[in-house]
Every structure is written in C-alpha cells, then in structure tokens.
C-alpha cells in the first residue's frame, strides 16, 4: 500500500515535466506581447523592446523554459509580470476562495446528489423518479451564469439574505461567517454537478440491482431499505467514486464563470485575467498546479477503489 503510493507519486514527475513543456509552449503561442500589454497604448517601440529584454522574453523559448523549470523544481514559480510579486503568493491569494468554494460545492453535491439519486433508484418508474429525474435534467441543462444571476436576484437583491458578491478572507473580520458569501456561488456551481451525480447514482444502482447477489440479499429476508443501501448503493459507490473525483477537479476550472458572476477573488478568475494580461508566469503556475491537482485526485480515486472494492489490489 505505502510502496504503491510512493510509486504513484514518483510517476507524477514525468507527467508534470511533459505537461509543463506543453503548457509553456502553448502559452507562448498566444499572440500578443506582455510588454506591450503592461505598458499600455502610449508605449513607444523602444520602451516595449527594453521591457521585453528586462523580462527575459527576448531569449530563445527553450532557454526561457529551462530558466523557468529550474525555478519550478526549487519551488519558485517565478514573478508575476503584472503584480511584480511571486506567482506562488498570487495563486495562494486566490486558492483560499477556490478551495473553500470547491469544498462547499462538493458538500452540496453529496448532500443533494446522493440521497436524491438513491430515492430515484429505489422508486424507479414512479412519479418520484420522474420528478427527481426532471429536476436533475433541468439543473444539468441550465447555464451556471443564468442560475447564478437569478440566485443573486432573488436571495441577495430581493430577499437580502445573502451578500451578492465578493469574499472577504475568513482570516479577516467575520471569520467563518464569511462563508455565507460562498453560499450562493457554491449552490450555483453544485446544481449541474449534483444533477449529474443524481443520474449516475440512479443508473449505477439500477445496474447493481439486477445482479444476482441482490437476489441473495432478498432471499435472506432483508428489508428493501437495507438492500438498497447495504447491497445496492454500496456496490454502486464503486462507479460513483470516480465521478466524485473528476467533479472535484473540474470544479476548479468550471468555477471561472461562477467566480466572475459573483466577483469572487478565486483562481478561476485569476487565470482568465492573467490570460488577458499575458501574465505568462501566472498562467503557467496555475495550470501546473491544476495538473498536479488532477494527478492527486486520480491517485485518491484509485486509492478509494482499493478501499471500496476488495477485488482491486493496489500493486
């Protein structure tokens, strides 16, 4: 188990190197000159050339890459061209919002997705199933920006229950109470994902329900509820676990729209703004961290498989 874990973590390294090369290459293919963006419309060609040299952007791309990667392996993602501060601290500023948003969203996904999915499966073919499936399709289909705007309109502007935008860090005044800023955004982000989990829990459970061992459980005289949870849902969880992993990773990138609608200072918004600013080091840094996040979640999902399914041996 431990040796499996170490082996898998070591396998991250070649993946990260390959990913970093691709990221570097593609970002430098984006048309537009960071120096020109930084200096604005009034800059003379001489100023731009001088700044380009200062930032090291006149060097051949392979030399820039080696320079950057040399920093990365020492834990230094470079300096933001725009903020003039270390990339790591720029990302760290957004990470609090993004992580809290993702965790809160996952909580909603589990709270709504799993029980409703189970209900839908155990009552399949009845009006309960049709109702929950209808809701699930509705929430999976509506765009998040629309849902976000309407939630703001009703709960923030109309009823005044929640703040409409921003997120003051919980280390600031207000502490954990500041989480209320994330309630509407997390619900917005959770809606389509919870809907998918409902559908997935339902279909996986219906598949498991056809298996022979469920008939064995019935023959033991267990109650339908016990069979549904202990024998059907428990086995369906193996298929659902992977979906949880990928949903969590995807939340970071999906959050871009939600963070924009709710003006949250998160990582998603940082990427978009950094692209517009041609802030290469920040974009590279964020994408590299997202790659690392995907790899880690993949590993966690695989470890979860080993735990959920005794037939899987982790070696």
């Amino acid at each position: 188990m431990l040796s499996y874990f170490i082996k898998r973590v070591l396998a991250f390294i070649p993946t990260l190197i390959a990913a970093s090369m691709l990221i570097f290459l593609f970002i430098h293919l984006i048309p537009g000159d960071p120096a020109a963006v930084l200096l604005g419309d009034t800059a003379t060609p001489e100023d731009i050339a001088a700044l380009t040299r200062e930032l090291g952007l006149d060097e051949p791309i392979w030399r820039q890459y080696i320079h950057w990667f040399g920093g990365v392996i020492q834990g230094d993602l470079g300096q933001s061209l725009f903020f003039k501060t270390p990339v790591l601290s720029v990302i760290a500023d957004g990470a609090e919002t993004s992580l809290l948003l993702a965790l809160m969203t996952m909580t909603w996904i589990v709270i709504f997705g799993v029980p409703i999915g189970i209900l839908s499966a155990t009552h399949h073919g009845t009006w309960i199933d049709q109702l929950t499936s209808g809701f699930a399709i509705f929430f999976a289909s509506i765009p998040t920006f629309w849902l976000g705007l309407y939630l703001i309109l009703f709960f923030a502007v109309g009823l005044g229950w929640f703040p409409s935008s921003g997120f003051p860090s919980i280390s600031d005044d207000g502490g954990w109470r500041n989480l209320r800023y994330l309630l509407l955004p997390s619900l917005t982000l959770a809606a389509p994902n919870a809907a998918l989990i409902i559908r997935l829990v339902r279909s996986s459970m219906l598949d498991v329900a056809k298996e022979d061992h469920v008939r064995t459980a019935k023959a033991k005289g267990l109650s339908p509820a016990k069979i549904a949870i202990k024998h059907v849902f428990r086995n369906a969880l193996i298929a659902v676990a992977a979906a949880f992993g990928f949903t969590f990773a995807a939340l970071i990138s999906e959050a871009v729209v939600t963070e924009t609608v709710f003006s949250l200072p998160g990582v998603g918004r940082l990427v978009v703004q950094s692209i517009l600013r041609r802030d290469y080091p920040v974009i590279q840094g964020v994408i590299l961290i997202i790659v690392l996040l995907y790899l880690s979640i993949n590993l966690i999902v695989d470890l979860a498989y080993g735990w959920l399914d005794p037939r899987v041996s982790l070696q």
């Binding site: 022979d212 061992h213 023959a219 005289g221 086995n235 399914d309």
Partner: peptide
Amino acid sequence: RRRIMGDTMSMIFQEPMTSLNPV
C-alpha cells in the same frame, strides 16, 4: 413474508460466482 425468508426457508442459487456480494 420477509420474516420467513432466510429463516424458515432459504435458497441456494445456480450461480455461485455472482450470488455473493463481492464487497
């Protein structure tokens, strides 16, 4: 009926490979 199933009467199935819960 469920109080009888598995207690007063029980059943062995044809497929031993799939009739046990793998987990």
